[in-house]
């Protein structure tokens, strides 16, 4: 070991990457801090808010949003966007919940598979048109939003799935808990963990970041962009499909307007969670936390006694605040890195 040859990996000089990592991690902790403050304040005003029931309710509500947000985050990371998630959730919710009425005694696992299948099919179509057709995803998924919702409405007709046709074991899923934590939240936490692990360690996962930060460079580096983008859309579709079944379990009564407009809330959650809207940076953990934050705010406002008509305005304001702060951090970071580069050069 001839030590003098290699410069010591001094924290400051080692890599600008480290600074970026620190800042990004701070971004995630920022959300957690806001969450903590929120829970604390709401809890002080209304102690019911920090009770187990309320927290379980929030976690259970968040599960659905977080599930969709993970898929959406993966799509947004590649500098694309999936506006069709709300329609996929709606379609999957109806088709899967309807299975109980048409096939008596069908197993719940099978119903989840049906939802997954619906989501996969939608994701494959959207992904294929976007990736193979090389057309902007904003337009394609906007069109798919209409098409899937239209198909949903045609299938549903004037019908509606009523809670009475669904077995109690299905409707109880959102309330089921394991050691006090909702099953749904645990399941979604596992999904988030898998997605985070995949994005951080797998080559194809890292590719999503590369594509999002510079599609041109990614192409020149030999990354199969079409394939990766296609995969991201398929995953987003699949997760939305599963979320549709969760939706059915949560709301029991499913009409053709189920999950209408969900896509914007999901994108808001993802962006609040620190995923850059033009891709290349962010994490699925952040996206899930963003969903949790938005849900917590909704509940907190309710519990504190602020009329629920304010929730929409406040979540819009929060989204704008989040991206404005991100922009500030980003500029600071860029300046810091530049200064560091100058110092290294000198």
């Amino acid at each position: 070991m001839s030590a003098p040859a290699v410069p010591p990996p001094d924290g400051e000089l080692a890599s600008p990457r480290r600074l970026v990592d620190v800042v990004l991690r701070a971004r995630t902790f920022g959300i957690i801090a806001v969450l903590a403050v929120l829970v604390l304040v709401a809890g002080l005003i209304q102690s019911r808010f920090v009770g187990g029931g309320e927290i379980r309710f929030i976690l259970s509500q968040t599960s659905l949003y977080a599930l969709v947000a993970v898929g959406e985050a993966m799509v947004i990371l590649t500098r694309n966007v999936d506006l069709s998630v709300g329609s996929v959730v709606g379609l999957s919710a109806y088709v899967s919940a309807n299975m109980f009425g048409t096939h008596h005694g069908i197993s719940i696992v099978l119903v989840f598979l049906v939802g997954l299948g619906v989501g996969l099919a939608c994701g494959i179509v959207t992904g294929a048109i976007t990736a193979v057709g090389r057309v902007p995803s904003l337009v394609v998924t906007l069109a798919m939003l209409y098409i899937i919702r239209g198909i949903d409405t045609i299938i549903v007709g004037s019908g509606v799935v009523l809670a009475s046709t669904e077995p109690n074991s299905f409707l109880n899923i959102p309330q089921d808990t394991l050691v006090g934590i909702p099953d749904l939240a645990l399941a979604v936490a596992v999904v988030v963990a898998i997605a985070a692990y995949y994005l951080n360690t797998f080559r194809s996962g890292r590719d999503l970041y590369a594509i999002g930060s510079d599609p041109d460079a990614a192409r020149r580096a030999g990354i199969p962009i079409a394939k990766r983008v296609f995969t991201a859309f398929v995953i987003s579709g699949a997760l939305s499909g599963v979320a549709g079944v969760v939706w059915a379990a949560q709301y029991a009564t499913i009409e053709s307007t189920a999950a209408n407009g969900l896509e914007l809330q999901i994108i808001a959650a993802v962006v609040v969670g620190g995923v850059a809207i033009f891709g290349g940076s962010g994490s699925v953990v952040g996206a899930a936390l963003g969903a949790l934050l938005l849900q917590t705010i909704n509940s907190a406002l309710n519990v504190i006694g602020i009329s629920s008509i304010w929730t929409e305005a406040i979540s819009g304001l929060l989204l704008i605040t989040a991206i404005t702060l991100d922009r500030g951090i980003q500029l600071r970071l860029a300046a810091a890195l530049r200064k560091r580069r100058v110092r290294l050069g000198a």
Binding site: V81, L138, L264, I267, A268, V271, I277, F278, I309, W310, T311, E312, A313, I314, S315, G316, L317, L319, I320, I323, T324, R327
Partner: peptide, 29 residues
Amino acid sequence: LVTKVGLPSLAVTIGTLTLYRGLANVVLG
């Protein structure tokens, strides 16, 4: 927000979509 702060209009106007709609809900209740 788009020109002075330098934010992407897609994100900004998703935010204001929600914000303005939320305010609209409040105005008349």
